[in-house]
Design a protein around this nucleic acid. Structure first.
Length: 336
DNA sequence: TAAACGTGGTA
DNA sequence: TTACCAAGTTT
């Protein structure tokens, strides 16, 4: 299995072999991290495993800057899994605010209840037990086991995938989905020493977030630019064009607009208001109490989408199915 | 395997 | 202004 070819042109099934020994790459990236890492509260010495878990769920597909204020409020309000487990789902979804993917809030709530009921209120440190919790997949289970419990696991997130695609494989971007070869490559790049493996996971992720970025990587600042296969190959462009995330006119957009209305409303919102346009709502308004201004503002945003009635029906049905909305007679609210 | 799932900043 | 992108998971 030993090849004499430089790893940059090796079969991806083979182990990575930098022009610089792997140990030097480890050292350079970890040193860079100690120098350049961001000061984030879920990395502070006083952090709890619960705080790490909450941060990892919030950070799924969501930028750090948007998570920060919500995480701080969350820790203040629900400092332990038991605290969150006892909260009404409606409060949880409201506190999630506009982080996006609100089903994550519901899954985190469900995870907190499982931790309370099945793990004596303590976040499990076992990878398999973490993986069994709702909303926790391969990445998050590994991340919590590593960052909260200091264990040796291979963490593979979008940042690490991109860094390793460039550094080890010479490609501008990783493929759309995680491949087995990629996982093997990441495993073989992980330092054997436990403490060093933790530092490596954290450091490579941070390198991808701050330097080895998707759009315009700052290679001048990279601690391993001399070992980078992509740089050595002349930074060839990405082979696979990114698949755009559709948004305008989608059910997702309508779901988001409906959720915004429900989050803003303390009282159940009349179902017809969610299913009609502005003209229709003005007819309905006669003889009814006017909704608060915040709700009107969100309703206006919903109406502006001009989504067909059947699409609103579909979106609302989906929200109810997912447990994000409850029907109360003619009213709709966040789940009790 | 692929589609669905929110939201808002940035180029 | 449009389109990409962000510490993924579930079905």
């Amino acid at each position: 299995m030993v090849s004499t070819l430089p790893w940059s042109v090796m079969n991806p099934n083979d182990e990575p072999r930098a022009q610089r020994p792997l140990r030097d790459v480890h050292r350079a990236v970890i040193e860079w991290y100690r120098r350049s890492c961001r000061d984030l509260p879920w990395r502070a010495p006083e952090r709890t495993a619960w705080g790490v878990l909450v941060s990892e769920i919030m950070l799924q597909q969501t930028p750090v800057t948007r998570v920060l204020p919500v995480w701080l409020r969350w820790q203040q309000r629900w400092p332990t899994p038991g605290d969150l487990a006892g909260a009404p789902p409606a409060d949880v979804v409201r506190a999630w605010d506009r982080l996006g993917y609100p089903r994550r809030a519901l899954r985190l709530h469900a995870a907190a209840q499982r931790i309370r009921d099945e793990h004596a209120g303590e976040v499990p440190g076992n990878h398999a037990e973490l993986l069994a919790l709702p909303g926790i997949g391969a990445y998050t289970a590994a991340a919590v086991a590593v960052f909260a419990f200091g264990q040796r696991h291979t963490v593979v997130d979008t940042n690490i995938r991109r860094v390793e695609a460039r550094l080890f494989s010479g490609r501008a971007l990783p493929s759309r989905s995680l491949t087995a070869a990629e996982t093997r490559c990441a495993e073989s790049a992980l330092p054997e020493d436990v403490a060093e493996s933790v530092a490596w996971n954290q450091a490579v992720m941070e390198l991808g977030a701050l330097v080895c970025t998707a759009r315009a990587p700052r290679c001048e600042e990279c601690p391993v630019r001399d070992a980078c296969a992509w740089v050595a190959a002349g930074k060839p462009p990405a082979e696979n064009a990114p698949r755009g995330q559709s948004w305008h006119g989608t059910d997702r957009q309508v779901r988001g607009a409906i959720m915004a209305v429900l989050r803003a409303a303390e009282e159940p919102v009349a179902r017809p208001l969610l299913l009609t346009d502005r003209a229709g709502s003005e007819q309905l308004a006669a003889g009814h109490a006017a909704p608060p201004d915040v709700v009107v503002e969100r309703l206006t945003a919903l109406w502006r989408l001009s989504a067909p009635v059947e699409q609103r029906e579909r979106a609302l049905t989906g929200l109810v199915r997912d447990g994000l909305a409850s029907l109360e007679g003619e009213g709709v609210s966040l789940p009790r």
